[in-house]
């Protein structure tokens, strides 16, 4: 099964993020101001900066290395920058955060995104 429990929602600071260390690389799990939770590969499409360390605002995060702004829902860079980082499905049940460790392939944006990453 590809869903794993990563911890309590309260362990992720609001407007912040925590890292889930997977064998294949880090995944950043974000919690926004309105308590939505998102997960992206912890690497900016620009130069691989750790997005988990960025400032979260709205449903976006700003990469700490060169200020690219990444959409948390899609992993896409905000215009005019172009690039995309892989997204992961994530859910909160009874205050616990669950992460699907397979990169999201079912959502339309996730698939488009992965293809672009692969062809880049």
């Amino acid at each position: 099964m590809s869903w794993i429990e990563v911890g309590e929602l309260s362990e992720i600071p609001r407007l912040g993020s925590r890292v889930v260390r997977l064998p294949g690389g880090d995944v950043a799990v974000f919690r926004t101001g309105d308590d939505r939770v998102f997960a992206l590969r912890d690497a900016c499409p620009h130069r691989g900066g750790p997005l988990s360390q960025g400032i979260v605002h709205g449903h976006r995060v700003t990469c700490p290395l060169h200020n690219w702004v990444i959409e948390l829902e899609t992993g896409e860079a905000a215009g005019p920058d172009t690039g995309c980082t892989a997204g992961y499905a994530v859910k909160v049940q009874q205050g616990r955060v669950w992460l699907n460790v397979e990169p999201a392939r079912d959502s339309q944006s996730g698939e488009a995104c992965l293809q672009r990453v692969a062809s880049a």
Binding site: S2, V6, I12, R18, V20, R21
Partner: peptide, 12 residues
């Protein structure tokens, strides 16, 4: 990290 995940936990 909130959770370090070992390889066996993610392989079915």
């Amino acid at each position: 990290p909130i959770k370090p995940v070992a390889l066996k936990e993610v392989t079915p």
